[in-house]
Simulated assay, not measured.
Amino acid sequence: MDTDAALSQQLTAVVASTPGVTTVYATGSPIRVVLRTVTDAIGPDDETSAKVAVGREADGALTIGVTIGVTDGAPVPATLRLVGDAIRGVLATSREGTPIHEIDVRVCRIEDAAPLGTPLTGSATTL
């Protein structure tokens, strides 16, 4: 396995364990996402699969991209900051001295933190 794939797996595990994150989605070009999705579906279920996109600029600087689902129980901006900080922490220890061009963290889904069937509380709006 190449070092960028290993880094992607490591970052995927770190992002998945970040408070507020419910899911890490495959990130990258549409073709690469489809290939990863098919590979994950055919292969064994591995929670540390490589879902974080790791790219390199011409000067060797890293470009990191990740798409996540978050819980509605925490503010989205705070969760995005936690994910970015977690990624920076990994890069600071495992890729010390490697410049970082960009860390792109996106939310594609906000999930209800309450279990299904839990009645909603608070004021309701009727139309």
Rank of each mutant, 00 (worst) to 15 (best):
T118Q: 10
A86N: 08
K51C: 06
V33Q: 09
G55C: 07
R106D: 08
V66P: 00
V33I: 15
R36P: 06
V76F: 01
R56E: 12
T67H: 03
A41M: 11
V70L: 06
G97A: 10
V90M: 05
V70N: 02
P77G: 03
A58R: 14
P77C: 02
S29R: 15
P75L: 04
A61C: 07
A61S: 15
I100D: 08
L35I: 13
I103F: 07
T126I: 14
T37I: 10
A74L: 07
V66H: 01
L120E: 13
A61Q: 07
L127Q: 09
E111K: 05
T118F: 06
V38F: 14
G84P: 03
R81C: 00
V76K: 02
D59M: 08
I87V: 15
T126D: 10
I42L: 13
P30C: 04
D85V: 07
I64W: 00
D112F: 02
T63R: 13
G43Q: 13
A74D: 04
V105N: 00
R36K: 15
A92V: 07
V52S: 06
D85P: 00
I100N: 08
P119T: 09
G69V: 03
T79K: 00
G55P: 05
P119G: 07
T39N: 11
T126F: 12
A86K: 01
V90D: 04
V34I: 14
L62G: 11
P44Q: 12
E102S: 14
